[in-house]
Nucleic acid binder design. Structure first.
Lengths: 200, 200
DNA sequence: GCACTGACAAAATCTGAATTCTGTCAGTAG
DNA sequence: CTACTGACAGAATTCAGATTTTGTCAGTGC
């Protein structure tokens, strides 16, 4: 059967495949077009430049990280518990990828290093999610009267060690899970949390 | 007058000069030897390899960071105040260097990226300093009964955003000082500090 | 004997000519 | 008209040959 008309989505799928196979350094627009059986000129009808295509792939990858977290952020239950789960989930997603497919993780890292604006938007989104959890906790009286945006950003910064890609090398430490717990026990108190999840 | 005998210290001084001038990528052992007016073979009497020389330079640079902090760590006054000052001092040293001499900072960063063991020792030293402050706070009853090594490491990890070189790009934000304060107000509560945030 | 030199082999890095890639656009096919 | 092609110029990348650098060591001179 004739392939469906060339869509932006199809190009992104192909680009992702090629990136996985060849890595970011060796992936060319010609490669992506060849994978689709079209000329590379066609790709430029959908993306103004290679950088825009890379940005779009990065955006999709990051969305796959932030969407499941969105569910957790807006879920039920005590805010402190939700926030801890959210942080553990974020850390687990990043750390699993780094551990199980280091090459793909390196690809991901390089791509995002160049897509600064896309990453900034992603970080804003994550900050907003944390801030929502904090705001819920403040509203329910579970947390002290902190400023949710400020505290949200602070929580994300304080846990950067466990989810920011530039610390990936440290994630090999077997105690990394306990270390996140230790940081959590520091910061959860700072939010004025009522039920500081005991784990002695 | 004849130059003093070639010492390890003199080589390190020359290596530092050359690194500042040419950057880490273009600095060769031959350059360092030329700066000293000796043959490069002589340098190898004092260092078994170029990497060892680079490690020694990195060790000296890092010592210049950790030594003043040592004074703060073992100083007088309430532990919480001392710890905050220590953190601000560490962040300020790194951030000032990154701001005022970005090229030298980049050189420093590259060099330390390769001197993994040296950096690990430095981090251990910093962790020990924080742990000492925490231990003092616990001993004086100012902090809750936390485990000093665990809490010390957690404090350093939670503030990595503000002192770890891989976050240097984020330090340009004008609110960076306030952001450290926000993280501090989270973690100081977690140590059970008396003053800043109530948590009963 | 001791501190250093300088020539050397192997490894790493540089250079520049040849190739490949990016981004554009007039042209083709349906 | 729309969706795509393919040829093209300039920019970026590759690759092999030339050069530099690393690390060793026998030799020099004090």
């Amino acid at each position: 059967m004739a392939p469906a008309a060339l869509t932006t989505e199809a190009i992104l799928d192909a680009a992702e495949d090629v990136l996985r196979r060849y890595g970011p350094a060796k992936t060319t627009v010609v490669d992506v077009a060849r994978a689709l059986g079209v000329s590379h000129g066609s790709v430029y009808r959908h993306f103004p430049a290679k950088a825009a295509l890379q940005d779009a792939v990065a955006r999709r990858w990051l969305a796959r990280v932030s969407e499941p977290l969105e569910v957790t952020a807006d879920g039920e239950g005590p805010a402190a518990q939700r926030l801890l789960r959210w942080l553990q989930q974020l850390a687990a997603v990043k750390q699993r990828m780094a551990r199980e497919d280091p090459e793909l993780f390196a690809t991901f890292e390089r791509l995002t290093a160049e897509a600064r604006e896309v990453v900034a938007a992603h970080v804003d989104q994550l900050t907003a999610q944390v801030s929502r959890i904090v705001a819920a906790g403040v509203a329910s009286g579970e947390f002290a009267q902190v400023d949710p945006p400020t505290a949200g950003r602070a929580v994300l910064q304080a846990t950067a060690w466990f989810h920011h890609p530039s610390h990936a090398a440290e994630w090999r430490s077997p105690g990394i899970g306990a270390e996140l717990d230790a940081v959590w026990s520091l910061i959860s108190a700072g939010l004025g949390a009522r039920s500081p999840v005991r784990r002695d």
